[in-house]
Write a protein that binds this DNA or RNA. Structure first.
Lengths: 350, 350
DNA sequence: CCTGTCATGGTTACCGTTCACACGCGTGGC
DNA sequence: GCCACGCGTGTGAACGGTAACCATGACAGG
């Protein structure tokens, strides 16, 4: 009955949309085999005669069969779906990571289901985890690298693989950029240009990334014997960079500023410009991230590049590693960022 | 057997992670009812005595039961999952739309599964559709507003709701920003400032958004009786803005530039700056999008704001409307953008 | 007292896969 | 000639829900 719904018309006017609702039995009937054989073909089992396989494949094509993943999930208890907890995905970094992850997941044969959270309190995160669990995801990647998330994630049902992206969790496998090293690169670059010290406008204090960058900056200053000013508190926005930048611009001893990210740097750049302090002649500015626009700031921004897409790919690797081994590691993968010199940093004024 | 896996320990050291694997039967057994009654409670059916309902709820809590959505999907043939075809999600616009959509979907009780595509050729889009179909999504939202996508989407299986976001498709319900109006706003603003005409650095020609903005710009010039120069071809990047900006900067008659988006404007700003043409004194620049950083460009960018999150929400509305009515509309929802004047535009030089 | 209706809850079939197992058949070793 | 074995294939039972249908008891109306 259902089988004759074939009619994948080659008639003009465009083929009709593929028919919903052909199932294994239909394919089996058309190919003259049992549903089990169809299943075998589908799952690349050995012990199917090539000729039979071809017949089945032809039938599948004719009926435009696609397998019902719900049924499959039900019996195998594997959904081939990954959950993604996303925070602030409108930012370039998280958005890119999401992209990298999805691409990687796709080629590994996984689907990705997202749950964005509006805030990172325990409540929201646990709620997101719940939603994902209900879809019986096999693993969860959290692009939400706040410390609080780490602890929330540790609570996730056993048998569920978890990976954090970014500075995050204590007891959760994590993949992150080596923020401290990146920050140190930027700082050393500025010191090498003759600046006696480097100011830092930091990201939000509850982001481990921000803290690690502070650490790297501080350490670089310290080991060069340079004075260590207090880091300026901020968040990831241009506005924060602007506000802190105004304060820094008013201080004539300031000649070098390392910013927690490129947006902050943009704000700082504007503040310096408004205060009449030329960049890089009077003040050098370095950012972090290397967003696509930073090469077009005024002046083009010296920064530290993170490979966000790679971050996504690696987090998938880590997840799959757990899925396959069945054990929850607490490995930490760290990616080294790359320093990108441009025009916003220069020799210290004499 | 399974029921005594309760032990959702209140013991110190943190409760053990919720137990996987309690199913309806377990709950039913514990509550002393049949699994059907549990189902009724779960689905808010009437005709369950309050006392029974409470017993069931208590049992569910005790066992930390969560229903298996695969089983549910299998029998109801409704997955409560939406598919999202995403393109260039690292850009601010698409990323924000994704966010808006996900939030809306969540509160409407839907899950969101994403399929990002690397390119928008028919092949890739159809492949993404396939992947989503396999997950038996109930509807698809395509944040991938190229013309080609529209036609590909029209091919989607019947019985599957589809919505395009952005300029896109012919025969597909669409929600978009009124790009022509936005472009006209920007253009009229510049004309009102006394500029004799307005140049336009456009987005990629295969994006309907870009075309609509060209149309709006052209129409505004035309109806004001201003000369209509050829639009400069570009893409959405700062680089394109920079390259076209250099050409424009070399032409002393150019006093006003309307850019296809804020990134382009950023590039143009830099090109003008390098050429020594002051903004806004000598040349006015207007962007489109109002990305969070544009208020911190040098100078702060006059632009046109799109409410991307609203775009996401509306596309969900449209999808749900189709899902509930069961008919595929080809309604087109158009959102009016908002003009945001800042410092990059000013009176024409005399 | 019989019947109809309503509230409540149980029975059972079914959704579309996969898995465990059985089956028939050719082949090779003894 | 018998048995074991591998190959290719079919059969039936899960998986965990929901929906349609049935059973029971209480209660009202005739």
């Amino acid at each position: 009955m259902t089988a004759d719904r074939v009619e994948t018309g080659d008639q003009p006017g465009g083929p009709p949309p593929r028919a919903r609702g052909s199932v294994m039995r239909d394919v089996a009937r058309l190919a003259g085999v049992s549903h089990q054989t169809v299943s075998r073909v589908l799952n690349d089992h050995p012990n199917v005669r090539p000729e039979t396989r071809d017949r089945v494949l032809a039938a599948m094509r004719a009926l435009n069969y696609r397998r019902n993943s719900a049924a499959r999930t039900l019996v195998t208890r594997k959904s081939r779906t990954l959950g993604l907890i996303a925070y602030e995905t409108t930012l370039f970094g998280p958005a890119s990571t999401l992209y990298g992850l999805e691409q990687a997941a796709r080629s590994a044969g996984y689907f990705v289901s997202v749950a964005s959270v509006r805030s990172l309190d325990r409540e929201s995160v646990l709620d997101a985890v719940d939603r994902l669990c209900e879809q019986s995801v096999e693993g969860i990647v959290a692009i939400a690298p706040q410390s609080s998330v780490g602890t929330a994630l540790a609570q996730v049902p056993t048998g569920l693989a978890v990976v954090g992206v970014g500075g995050g969790g204590e007891h959760v496998p994590t993949v992150c950029i080596d923020n401290a090293t990146g920050a140190a690169m930027a700082t050393r670059h500025l010191l090498a240009l003759g600046h006696t010290t480097v100011q830092h406008i930091a990201g939000p204090p509850d982001w481990p990334e921000a803290r690690d960058r502070i650490d790297g900056w501080r350490e670089a200053l310290h080991s060069a014997g340079a004075p260590v000013p207090a880091p300026r508190p901020g968040n990831w926005s241009a506005r924060a960079g602007y506000e802190q930048g105004r304060l820094l611009a008013a201080d004539p001893t300031v000649t070098a500023v390392f910013c927690g990210n490129d947006q902050i740097a943009l704000g700082a750049l504007r503040a310096l410009h408004e205060a009449g302090r030329r960049v890089p002649d009077e003040v050098s500015v370095v950012g972090f991230d290397d967003v696509p626009e930073s090469g077009y700031f005024l002046p083009p921004l010296t920064t530290v590049r993170q490979d966000f897409a790679e971050l996504g790919r690696r987090s998938l690797d880590l997840l799959i590693e757990q899925l396959e081994s069945g054990i929850r590691t607490d490995r930490r993968v760290s990616l080294t960022p790359r320093f990108v010199p441009r025009a916003s940093s220069g020799a210290a004024p004499t």
